[in-house]
Design a protein around this nucleic acid. Structure first.
Length: 419
DNA sequence: TCTGGGGTCCTAGGACCC
DNA sequence: TCTGGGGTCCTAGGACCC
């Protein structure tokens, strides 16, 4: 059996944890720059607020219905997530942390009865020890466990735990389960399937596998097999090392000043480099991209990206910032207002498994020590205590007008709460 | 006026090799 | 009129996820 533990309305639940008066009220959490809705309480869903909806489109509703609004506070959510995962690890054999608010559980080698017994305890214990409501679904494959977890959210009488293991139950569930709700079937595929008359998960399992493979590639076929109870998606305990690290932001206004865009790129590059060092990686290739506001009509539109190969694999902030900035400089065009930019670090290998370069003139050992000191100083005295000059001193403006405190991770904020 | 950010995997097609 | 067969690697783009 496989299980899935999935936090309910995670970001909203985190905000409520430190502000219980929000319980029972409509609450939403916004994306960076206070752009779109990315988490909604049950009450907010009931008001018809959709996932991904821009804030300005629901302004009226927010005012008339007194919806509580929060800017995203990832320092808080990340820390609460870590607590959830640590507590979960103590209860079950093995977990795969799948996202900030979800973990798969490997129950293989344990009897169905025992797995069910454990599963029923997870939600009450996490609620008691961490304070976050969690749905738990278990079944014979990851995809079916996803279905089961979704049922918990649909039927409160399940008490946040749904065990789906006999064939006739699964059959009944799939018959009522819409194809667009299946994990792995997105907007495009559900539209295609619907147009072919395949509107339920059950009908999907009755499709010809050759047809499925043809229309939805090998990925779709895997989903098809999983729904029929045949495990086809691997269980990965260590998903920590990223194959690419992307750091990007939208700006609060269009930037016509190239210098400002370059400063932002330098900042993205250096925070990417820091994440790279955290996983002991080195990169030999970076992508830079810049774009104008695609929603704005009547202005000149531009999207540009460039791939920069590096001379030798590196984790140095200096190298990565330098390469990123000069690449960005080469693609920026005057007269365009840039709304968003980003740096993607790719071609990542392990630092200790990478051979040095014959033609590198730098003392890489020294550079490594320097980076270590840089990271230590920024850890001790706070982010951006020490930055590259390219990044500049002036902060680039982002909208963040409804930010809660970092209740669990910032010493200043912890003190404030106590007072 | 205001529209997120960070990932994964797969496929097709081009450039190149012998 | 006729023009091989078998590969690899890379990239862009598309699909999906949260």
């Amino acid at each position: 059996m496989f299980g899935l533990a999935d936090c309910n309305n995670f970001y909203v639940s985190c905000e409520r944890l430190f502000n219980p008066s929000l319980c029972g009220k409509p609450v939403v959490v916004l994306s960076n720059n206070d752009g779109c809705v990315i988490s909604r309480s049950q009450e907010a869903k009931k008001l018809g607020i959709k996932m991904g909806e821009p804030l300005f489109k629901i302004k009226k509703l927010v005012e008339s219905e007194r919806v509580y609004i929060f800017s995203s506070n990832f320092a808080l959510y990340g820390d609460i997530s870590w607590r959830i995962m640590e507590r979960l690890r103590q209860m079950v054999p093995t977990i795969e942390v799948y996202s900030i608010d979800e973990a798969f559980i490997d129950f293989r080698g344990i009897s169905g009865d025992q797995a069910s017994k454990i599963a029923r305890n997870i939600s009450p214990i996490l609620l008691r020890d961490v304070g976050i409501p969690v749905s738990v679904g278990i079944s014979t494959t990851k995809t079916l466990a996803k279905v089961a977890a979704k049922l918990c959210k649909r039927y409160p009488k399940l008490n946040n735990c749904c065990i789906m293991n006999n064939a006739s139950d699964i059959d009944k569930v799939l018959d009522k389960f819409r194809v667009e709700d299946i994990w792995g079937v997105g907007r495009r595929y559900s539209k295609m399937l619907n147009s072919e008359g395949v509107d339920t998960a059950k009908k999907f399992t009755e499709c010809n596998p050759v047809w499925v493979r043809d229309k939805m590639s090998i990925v779709g076929l895997r989903t098809w097999k999983e729904l029929k109870g045949e495990p086809n998606i691997g269980f990965e305990e260590n998903l920590n090392d990223k194959q690419q690290i992307c750091t990007s932001r939208s700006f609060s206004s269009d930037l016509y000043d190239h210098e400002k865009v370059i400063m932002a790129i330098a900042k993205f590059a250096s925070s990417g480099a820091e994440k790279l060092r955290k996983q002991n990686g080195v990169t030999s290739q970076i992508h830079i991209f810049i774009l104008t506001n695609p929603f704005k009509e009547g202005v000149k539109e531009d999207y540009r990206s460039i791939v920069v190969p590096l001379n030798y694999p590196t984790d140095s902030t200096f190298e990565i910032v330098k390469a990123s900035c000069s690449a960005a400089l080469s693609i920026l065009k005057s007269g365009y207002g840039y709304k968003k930019a980003g740096v993607i670090i790719t071609d990542i290998t392990k630092k200790n498994e990478t051979t040095g370069s014959l033609f590198c003139e730098k003392d890489l050992g020294k550079e490594s020590e320097l980076m270590k000191s840089l990271d230590e100083i920024n850890l001790k005295y706070g982010r951006d205590t020490l930055v590259t000059a390219a990044q500049g001193v002036d902060k680039i403006k982002y909208n963040m007008n409804n930010l809660s405190r970092r209740y669990t991770t910032s010493w200043e904020d912890i003190i404030k709460v106590k007072i």
